[in-house]
Design a binder for these strands. Structure first.
Lengths: 254, 254
DNA sequence: CGACTTATTGATGCACTTCAAGCGACGTGG
DNA sequence: CCACGTCGCTTGAAGTGCATCAATAAGTCG
């Protein structure tokens, strides 16, 4: 079975067998990390690139008041930082939310793979750009949307991102965040997240049981929060419009 | 006089004369754009990279309710999008705030310059990474800080970013944003921005006159909003800690 | 089973939004 | 040259959405 990274990259553009094989070559040294552990701390200077193979992690900063702000959720197939080594040191921390399977990929291996496979280099670029786009959408979400659609938007986004890596069945996916952690990502109090959550439940939009979230009515949830998936730039999935780019045989260096 | 881009890149690492010369070669086809004009619209597929040489611009999205959310401020030396052409189309718009001088740089020219000058390629990478870091800090700002420190933080960040491109004198810089535009970046109402602004003024922290903002007490303003400049990853300016890389005589062309 | 974390609910208060009106600066046209 | 419109800033008043504090219930892990 192909792992999350390959699936994700192929939601951008198809890969040759050689490219897929090269990607598999990156995934050695898998390790298991428990929930709520730091993978990287602020001030670190990581030499390896981290890849999340399974589980949820997050980027976060802690404000002087002690409150934590989560800035991004990392799901299977997501890189922690493809090119941090250019910077002097990490300006934020990365921690697990659930138990995670993490891969340490030497910087050199990334570079070499990208050099030998133009399609992978392009796909890595695409990852970085989409990460930025997601971040911008989060800013819009927090800055501009009311609490209920704000939370709903997160659920919609995760539905699509997890779908792209094969982690969704029947509009359900594993959702390990506590309400407090949702509050930390959404700039709300945990109490208010709870009440808003209740509203969404009453509206018949979502259902949560044993850390599995089910979207009861995808279209209604999307309409509820004005979810527009263009910022995820998926084009090769059932959500992304499949464009007629008709790759003329991809010219893949193999 | 060297332009903003060169200055900015040199706040990351020093450049050779050849590299500086190559950068100058990118800056042809300068055009003037009036205030409050769109440079790029959502859905566009730009072929050129835009560089802001002078003035303020912003990234923004418009929510269905009609409200605008500004997601980033672009100041002299900032690229609009170094690598958008990998994506299918723009997921947000870019518009000017003040009158701007903009350069259209063909994608090919960017690629060639980066290929021939490793230091420039690295510096371009650094630009992208810092853009992301700024975006994350904005998320923390909007999600976690109260209105007064939130606005103060913006002023601190602009002070340093503009300082890096030589647009600050005596802790003053041109500040063309209206209070409504500040509100649109901060996720606040314009009325509340006005009141909060008044608070900052009463505290003796800032002073605005004829679109020139003066930070009256930089250290106090920084302390007020817990400003930590590490996320800007400057190391070659008077703010960034100068690391003992021992450049043999700054090679400051001037 | 007992300790601890997570979810839920109530009560209280204030920070922020919204609506609304007035003011100064600026530009335009009669 | 002054009347007028527009735009940005300022201030007031009113309502409420969200945070905070607090206590209980439900779930989870040893």
């Amino acid at each position: 079975m192909q792992h999350a990274l390959t699936r994700k990259l192929e939601s951008f553009e198809p890969l040759s067998d050689q490219a897929r094989w090269a990607l598999n070559g990156l995934v050695i040294k898998v390790r298991q990390v428990g929930a709520r552990q730091d993978l990287i701390q602020e001030g670190d200077k990581p030499e390896n690139v981290l890849l999340i193979l399974d589980g949820f992690a997050c980027r976060y900063k802690v404000l002087p008041g002690g409150q934590r702000q989560i800035m991004a959720l990392l799901v299977p197939g997501d890189f922690c930082d493809l090119n941090v080594f250019i910077l002097d040191e990490m300006d934020h921390a990365i921690g697990t939310i659930s138990t995670c399977q993490v891969v340490d990929i030497p910087r050199q291996a990334i570079d070499e793979t990208a050099t030998h496979h133009a399609s992978i280099a392009r796909a890595f670029w695409w990852c970085s750009l989409v990460d930025g786009a997601v971040l911008r959408e989060w800013l819009v979400n927090i800055g501009g949307r009311l609490p209920a659609p704000r939370i709903a938007h997160l659920f919609c986004e995760l539905l699509m991102r997890l779908e792209a890596v094969g982690r969704v069945t029947d509009n359900s996916y594993a959702f390990p965040l506590t309400q407090t952690e949702i509050a930390e990502t959404m700039g709300l109090s945990d109490v208010h997240v709870n009440r808003t959550w209740g509203d969404l439940r009453v509206l018949g939009l979502i259902h949560l049981k044993q850390r599995v979230l089910t979207i009861l009515d995808v279209e209604r949830l999307k309409a509820f929060c004005d979810f527009t998936p263009n910022y995820l730039h998926l084009r090769n999935t059932r959500w992304g419009e499949r464009r007629d780019l008709s790759w003329p045989g991809r010219a893949e260096g193999g």
